[in-house]
């Protein structure tokens, strides 16, 4: 009765019999071209970051990272990410929920607005906040009267980063939620669950892989953002420099090894992000493939 679930993957044969297959030399040269391109433009520069970081030895590397201004930059970057990512996670889930499960006036507009930060240059995004909150800006006087610093301070950096990383979570979740429909949520309601219980016990488990994927992308961008932050930060060493700004400052100041040392931290973050992303994609694929494979089994109706 109990069948063993076996997933048969189509084996890709080296010598395919398909008539539409390109000749071997075409495939070979295409793969070689792709590989060469990736090596020259992706792998080599990344390896070079680490190479340059350690070019003057471990001591200089550690020194560069332990410099008070670098430490301050690392801390600020972490603080900004710690505020930005949860905010955009909550926003992303609610926006995706609205768009995927409800029909309302202005839905198309909201969908377009979510994409706005992707289409606006980060520098322009920074300038928008400078115009609003800066000393000469529209709301600048109001904030100055209350002694609240927004521009050239942490709040401005957080605002700019939130704007730039707005779309990541929502864009990941909208297709996942649309595909899921709302039947399971309705089923939970008929079983007595409240809205919150339904969300935490049914919706969230269903979207968790997509959500995690969106969060790590959001985090990577929040930590790596340069353009928008650069405009609102004011570049005050040890106070309003984030890690990317600090790297730029060191590099421009002819401290190449120190710049690359800090850059290696961001590069490392990128590699970790990629690794997690690949893992999550693999998990999601596996879950999807399992969902597709139907277990056919002797199906006898019991006597009640």
């Amino acid at each position: 009765m109990a069948g063993i679930v076996t997933r048969v993957r189509p084996r890709t044969d080296a010598r395919s019999q398909r008539g539409s297959e390109e000749p071997a030399w075409v495939r070979g040269s295409l793969i070689a071209a792709g590989g060469l391109f990736a090596a020259v433009f992706l792998v080599l520069p990344l390896a070079n970051v680490f190479w340059q970081a350690f070019s003057k030895g471990w001591f200089v590397y550690i020194q560069a990272i332990r410099h008070p201004d670098s430490w301050a930059a690392i801390r600020l970057t972490l603080v900004v990410a710690a505020i930005t990512v949860p905010f955009n996670t909550v926003f992303g889930i609610s926006a995706a929920w609205c768009i995927a499960k409800f029909e309302f006036r202005g839905k198309a507009l909201l969908t377009t607005l979510i994409d706005l930060p992707f289409s606006v240059s980060p520098v322009v995004a920074g300038l928008m906040f400078a115009v609003l909150f800066g000393l000469q800006g529209y709301w600048g006087d109001w904030f100055q009267a209350r002694d609240i610093k927004v521009i050239f301070a942490t709040p401005g950096i957080v605002l700019a980063t939130i704007f730039v990383t707005f779309p990541f979570v929502a864009r990941e979740l909208i297709p996942v939620m649309k595909a899921g429909g709302s039947d399971q949520e309705q089923a939970a309601l008929t079983l007595g669950a409240s809205g919150w219980q339904t969300f935490f016990r049914v919706t969230l488990p269903n979207i968790k892989w997509g959500l995690l994927y969106g969060i790590i992308l959001c985090n990577a961008r929040a930590m790596g953002e340069y353009g928008a932050v650069s405009v609102v930060s004011g570049h005050i060493g040890g106070r309003t420099d984030t890690l990317p700004l600090r790297i730029d400052k060191l590099y421009v100041g002819y401290q190449g090894a120190a710049a690359f040392a800090c850059a290696s931290l961001l590069a490392l973050l990128a590699l970790v992000t990629l690794a997690i992303k690949s893992y999550l994609e693999w998990r999601a694929d596996a879950a999807h493939a399992q969902g597709q494979s139907d277990v056919s089994e002797s199906d006898k109706t019991p006597n009640p």
Partner: peptide
């Protein structure tokens, strides 16, 4: 509210919780 009506509902596609 639906939660208080004390009904059992079977959906067309069954709507089983797929993670449970």
């Amino acid at each position: 509210a639906v939660q208080q009506r004390n009904i059992g509902f079977v959906f067309q596609g069954y709507a089983l919780f797929r993670t449970m």
